[in-house]
Each structure stands twice: as C-alpha cells, then as structure tokens.
Amino acid sequence: MVEKAQQQGYPLAPANGYSGSDEEAGRSMSDEERRQKRKKWALYIIVFVIFQTGIIVLFNMTVMKFRTPKFRVRSATSSETFDTQPSSFNVMMNT
C-alpha cells in the first residue's frame, strides 16, 4: 500500500506528524540563526518590560493617586510638663 501511494505521487506523512528528514533533525543551527533567535527573544523581553512599565504607571496615576494629607491645628497650648535631660527633652502639648 505504501509503495502504491509513492508510485502515484502521494507524499507519505509520518505517524508523529513531523515531516522533517533525518538530515534536518541532525543539523545544528548556524551562528546567524542563533543570533537572529537571540535578537528576537531580546526584542520580546524589551517589549514586555515596556508594556509592564506602562501598566504600572497607568495604575499609579489612576488608582494610587498621591494626595497631600490635610493637617490642621486649631489651637495649641503647652502644659507645664517640660522635662530636659542631657540627651533628650520631653514636652507635653494639648491640641
């Protein structure tokens, strides 16, 4: 049956689905192909880092807005507790 199919000009597909020959499987990649692959991966990594940086900046600008806390002191009086020591001092304030 295989011989008949080959005689009629039909290509035979291997059982595993890979149609490469033994020559192609044994061949190692050339330096140029490796260099191209490395460039492609470096480009993918750079694009991913830029994308993640953009997402982080967008998140920080929309969700995590910087707000200045409002701090108001209406009246302040110092009590009579004012302790001094050689290395520190202690003041009690009522606000």
Rank of each mutant, 00 (worst) to 15 (best):
Y10N: 06
D83W: 07
P11I: 01
K4F: 03
D31I: 04
V91C: 05
K4C: 09
R74G: 15
F82D: 13
Y10H: 08
Y18H: 11
S75A: 13
R72A: 00
Q36V: 07
Y10Q: 07
V73A: 14
Y10W: 06
F59D: 12
F48H: 02
E24S: 03
L58T: 10
E33N: 03
T95H: 03
V63R: 13
K70T: 03
G26S: 05
T81D: 06
M1K: 12
K4D: 07
R35L: 11
D31S: 02
D83G: 12
Q7R: 15
K4Y: 04
F48P: 03
N16Y: 01
G9R: 05
D83P: 06
M93G: 07
S28L: 07
E3L: 13
S28K: 08
I56G: 05
V91F: 05
T77A: 05
M92C: 00
S78G: 14
P14I: 03
S88L: 06
S79K: 07
M92P: 00
M92Q: 00
Q52E: 08
Q7W: 10
Q7F: 10
R67A: 10
N16A: 01
T68L: 11
A15R: 08
V91W: 05
Q52L: 11
D31F: 01
P14C: 04
I45K: 09
S79W: 03
F51E: 09
M29N: 00
A76L: 15
Y10M: 08
A76R: 14
V73E: 14
Q85I: 09
F89M: 10
Y10C: 06
K37G: 04
F89N: 08
Y18V: 13
R27P: 04
D83L: 14
P69L: 12
Y18S: 12
F82I: 14
E80N: 12
S75N: 14
P11V: 02
P69H: 10
F71Y: 15
F71N: 15
F51L: 13
P14H: 04
A5C: 10
M29G: 00
E80P: 11
L58N: 10
K65S: 06
G20R: 13
Q8I: 06
F71I: 15
E3V: 14
T81P: 05
K70R: 01
G54N: 09
R67Y: 05
N90F: 01
F82C: 12
Q8S: 09
W41I: 02
V47I: 07
M29K: 00
K37A: 06
K70C: 01
K4L: 10
G54K: 09
D83F: 11
V49I: 03
Y44M: 01
T53N: 06
R35N: 11
K37S: 05
R35K: 13
G54L: 14
M64L: 09
R72L: 01
K70S: 01
Q7D: 13
T62W: 08
Q52P: 05
P11R: 02
W41S: 01
Y18C: 13
Y18T: 12
S88I: 05
M1I: 13
R74M: 15
